[in-house]
Nucleic acid binder design. Structure first.
Length: 924
RNA sequence: ACCCAAGUGGCGGAAUUAGGUAUACGCGCUGGACUCAAAAUCCAGUGAUAUAAUCAUUAUCAUGCGGGUUCAAAUCCCGCCUUGGGUACCA
């Protein structure tokens, strides 16, 4: 038996042991369940870095803690393997995403296993495997065949709606829909198939419609804002345009209200809730309708949202989005038309996203103010964030920052119509005719009453229906074919609709075998399309959020080939008790998956309204990156602090370099640099004060910045237990923090001290005697602290408390079994390998996870008969003083005034503050 | 631009749940023990300034900046600054 702490041997042994003995399976049983999950990882080619590990280690600590608390823990992992990077990589290298993904998953799996995370590997899933995406496709089909009934606040099958249309038309229907008109059953029956489907598209929860996207013609694809810089694609540098395209959408707006309400039942930080609330962006407002004459005297109605009717006299202009249906034909004179089309042209070109300058164009047209009957000018502008439905806005520059800036630039009037009245101590209306002198509330009521015919109360939401189509290859095929332009779903028995094999990943989009044979029920060659029995299949794929919106359900029942989840298993695991992941997912993923879950609940396939009970955001790990200044086209490097001085002579480029070339802080080790970068032949360095400085920046870890830290190397050098504890000891999980290895020695020392507590002169030895009261007190203080701190996920302070206890035991030379056994159990979630090893050495025959954690015994912590008061003078702490518990306030006052440190001063006491059981503050 | 978060010694951080000893724990540094020496280990000290010329003591100032509330503010309120994240096709 080894006597030294040999982490290499120990960790390998226990990792094999756990796998061999199936210690972490998480099968359904009669114990209380606990479902803990990390957000879905995307297996990138760079492998795992320490940032990922932070989340896995924290979830693992909690999972292991819950197990020794007697829970049946589900702690699964899988891979979100569809998505852009693999496709991008394929385009660059020609390597098929399928192969890349497999390799990366394997790499991740090995890396995770090396840090001893207790995942249920038997439940691993991957979104790009057909057994999985079969059900993603199935769910899309269900969404397509559903509509939202507002009367029941629930999604329902579309055939019920069609039935209703046949009986009563849409007169009695209260649905979330983009269809405005009413029709009777007779009208409905007269519609042809195409017309009927066009109407149904306005009700379906998955529907086709036009939307504006960033189109890059050269790449033949739509780009994310992130993929664009200065109006050009980052990949290749090709121009990008705004384009209206027919896209699949998901009617997520139907669930806006429930997504808001559901937040009450999720335990998470207030900031996360705020982010979600802002994302949904609910506001009460009124629709106001203005008549406008288009060219050839055609009269149309413009709908705008009025948020504050009390400020109605402050309206001085109206804004339309360049994408408003009237924008192209609102101008009547030739000159205005010319100006408008010029503006529209420049704004279909994408510029930088957030450096929007104040821009706009006068249309030459007006609407009429409902009270003053004065003309209000209409402008077209993309300076404002506009409502997605109406694509318009009312400008009240007297009371809005952006409107004010706009008004100033275009020489429009800005009227303040609300003023604070000191006399009445409230805001009142001014310059508002019959509203003058009224409070805002009164004024609002009055306006609404007078205009009741044309002011319709509405709720406006910032959240809008999600675009679901992706003009990409590497995603789930959308199981739709087009029968004479009418979208039809592939029969569910013939799912999955397999992603076709493809060998070229350039922008060439045509698929050779991508048609649906309705009779033979199979995919056939595209050239066979005859629009009789063989029809084209939808060529877009699903977004990566589709697969990640329900994966947590599949973990409960991975092997099921009959349905996506077995009812009994769903009844047992229900939903996720704890969901851990980065705050960068606070909007997208959390909104989409909550929506998806609510839909499944409405249709009766799951029983819970919310998928996540508690959400914990982990912070990011940052790392220093270093860049140096190089003169473009020459092997001349300039010290960073000379950047501005030399600016006039040279054009610079900034290069990321490896941190191994840095000698201290931001100074470059020139010899190291020459050694690492021989490609810069005979480089010349321009120094400042004999040193060459780099630019040092704390950034997100990324291989392209050469600042990635690989956990494997740390595990090899220090061991997984040290790495795990160190990662936690860096600071609170929720905070972003820089990575540095400098302090890992502290944890290494701690684990060695812990090991030595169980050993004397290298021989394992524990004392069987009964512990003293003092020793028990130390133990139970720790138990109390750990219970509390683990619940708060304050794992860094848990480790501090372990250190304190171990130091105390070393001081007392205590190696008693009755103290060490509970100690090692408490530490086991944090450092499982060393704990298992010592547990075995203590003579235990089974893994430490099968032994319940000792409970707190308060009697060891009870204090004596005195209460300690903090004595302060003028609000500053001076000393501690004990008083008998029985003493009255008066007696305490008397005692403290007679205290030698108080009595001897010559100053007069002005005031004495006594807070019972806490402090005494003496004021001179 | 908007939304969310963070800012405490030389460094990572603790104390923030509910205002009540600011700097726990660890790193680093300094001194000592052991050693021929070094490493490792162990022991002690460690916010700043002043007083003291050793120990102690005491006082003042310190939680990004400027105000406010309070007997008492790192913690609550108002206004700024800096850094990180999100803003709908990166995941």
């Amino acid at each position: 038996m080894d006597t030294e702490y040999n982490f290499r041997k120990i960790e390998k042994y226990w990792q094999i042991y756990w796998e061999k003995h199936h210690v972490f399976l998480g099968e359904e049983n009669n114990k209380k369940k606990y479902y803990i999950l990390n957000m879905f990882p995307y297996p990138s080619g760079y492998g795992l870095h320490v940032g990922h590990c932070l989340g896995y280690i924290s979830s693992d600590i909690y999972a292991r803690y819950k197990r020794i608390k007697g829970y049946n823990v589900l702690h699964p992992i899988g891979f979100d393997s569809f998505g852009l990077p693999a496709e991008q990589y394929a385009i660059q290298t020609g390597k098929h995403p399928l192969d890349t993904i497999k390799e990366n998953e394997k790499k991740y799996t090995n890396q995770i296993k090396k840090i001893g995370i207790s995942f249920n590997w038997n439940r691993k899933i991957s979104t790009s495997s057909p057994q999985y995406y079969r059900w993603t496709q199935w769910m899309f089909i269900q969404i397509f065949h559903s509509w939202y009934d507002k009367n029941y606040e629930s999604a329902k099958p579309i055939h019920l709606l069609i039935q209703e249309f046949n009986q009563h038309g849409n007169v009695l229907v209260n649905a979330i829909t983009s269809y405005q008109e009413k029709f009777s059953s007779t009208t409905w029956k007269k519609f042809n198939v195409q017309e009927k489907e066009n109407i149904l598209q306005n009700y379906r929860l998955a529907y086709l419609c036009q939307n504006i996207v960033n189109w890059c013609p050269y790449l033949g694809t739509v780009l994310a804002n992130e993929e664009i810089k200065n109006g050009r694609s980052i990949r290749g540098g090709y121009p990008v345009y705004k384009k209206n395209m027919l896209q699949w959408h998901i009617r997520i707006s139907a669930y806006a209200e429930r997504l808001l309400k559901g937040l009450d039942n999720i335990k998470c930080s207030d900031s996360l809730k705020k982010i979600q609330i802002h994302w949904i962006g609910k506001k009460h407002c009124f629709s106001i309708f203005f008549k406008v004459r288009l060219h050839e005297s055609e009269e149309k109605i413009i709908e705008c949202l009025l948020f504050e009717p009390e400020k109605i006299f402050g309206i001085t202009f109206i804004i339309l989005s360049p994408y408003h249906p009237f924008s192209k034909r609102i101008s009547t004179s030739h000159k205005d038309k010319k100006n408008v089309s010029k503006y529209l042209l420049t704004h279909f070109l994408i510029k930088n996203n957030f450096s929007k300058s104040i821009s706009g164009v006068f249309t030459g047209n007006h609407v009429i103010h409902p009270f003053t009957k004065k003309k209000i000018p209409i402008y077209i502008s993309n300076f404002f964030p506009l409502d997605h439905r109406t694509k318009s806005m009312i400008g009240i520059p007297g009371h809005e920052k952006r409107s004010y800036q706009f008004a100033k630039k275009f020489g429009l009037k800005s009227v303040k119509v609300v003023k604070f009245c000191i006399k009445e101590n409230k805001n009142i209306c001014i310059r508002s005719h019959f509203l003058n002198g009224l409070s805002l509330n009164q004024a609002k009521k009055k306006v609404v009453k007078i205009l009741r015919e044309s002011l319709i109360p509405k709720k406006s939401y910032k959240i809008h229906d999600a675009i679901f189509s992706r003009q990409r290859y590497w995603g789930e095929p959308i199981p739709i074919y087009f029968e004479n332009n009418i979208p039809k779903t592939i029969p569910v028995d013939y799912l999955p609709l397999l992603l076709p094999k493809k060998n070229h990943f350039n922008h060439e989009k045509l698929l050779k075998k991508w048609a649906w044979d309705k009779k033979k029920k199979r995919v056939v060659e595209t050239h066979l399309i005859d629009h009789q029995t063989i029809f084209p299949i939808e060529t877009s794929t699903m977004p990566s959020w589709a697969g990640s919106s329900w994966y947590f359900l599949r973990y409960m029942d991975v092997e099921n080939n009959n349905f996506f989840i077995d009812k009994k298993k769903e009844m047992y695991w229900k939903n996720i008790d704890l969901y851990i992941g980065g705050s960068e997912h606070s909007t997208g993923h959390l909104i989409y998956s909550r929506f998806w879950h609510k839909f499944l609940k409405d249709r009766g396939w799951v029983q819970t309204e919310e998928p996540f009970k508690k959400i914990l955001n982990q912070g990011m790990i940052l790392s220093y990156s270093f860049t140096i200044l190089k003169v473009i086209g020459k092997n001349i490097f300039v010290s960073y602090n000379l950047k501005n001085r030399k600016k006039t002579f040279f054009l610079f480029q900034e290069l990321y370099i490896s941190h191994t070339c840095i000698k201290e802080k931001d100074k470059l080790d020139i010899n190291q640099f020459k050694y690492h970068y021989p490609e810069f032949y005979n480089p010349i360095f321009i120094l400042k004060n004999g040193e060459f400085f780099c630019k040092r920046q704390l950034e997100k870890m990324s291989k392209s910045k050469y600042n990635v830290i690989n956990p494997e190397l740390i595990c090899e050098q220090y061991g997984a237990d040290t790495f795990r504890m160190y990662a936690m000891f860096l600071g609170p999980i929720v905070q972003s923090k820089p990575w540095s290895l400098q302090k890992i020695i502290g944890i290494k020392n701690f684990l060695r001290k812990l090991w030595n507590l169980f050993h004397k002169n290298g021989i394992f030895q524990v004392n069987e005697e009964n512990p003293t009261n003092e020793e028990f007190k130390i133990l139970h203080t720790l138990i109390k602290k750990i219970e509390k701190k683990i619940q708060l996920f304050s794992f860094n302070t848990c480790i501090s408390h372990f250190m304190i206890m171990v130091n105390q035991l070393i001081f007392l030379k205590c190696n008693k079994r009755k103290i060490l056994e509970p100690l090692i159990q408490l530490i086991s979630p944090f450092a499982p390998h060393i704990s298992e090893e010592l547990w075995m050495k203590l003579g235990k025959k089974k893994s430490i996870i099968y032994f319940p954690i000792p409970s707190l015994q308060e009697q060891y912590l009870l204090n004596d008969k005195q209460i300690t008061y903090k004595i302060m003078i003028n609000g500053k702490f001076k000393f501690l003083e004990k008083f008998d518990k029985k003493l009255s306030m008066k007696q305490i006052e008397k005692n403290i005034l007679n205290h030698k440190k108080i009595k001897n001063t010559e100053k007069r006491i002005k005031k004495l503050v006594i807070i019972p059981k806490k402090i005494i503050n003496i004021l001179y």
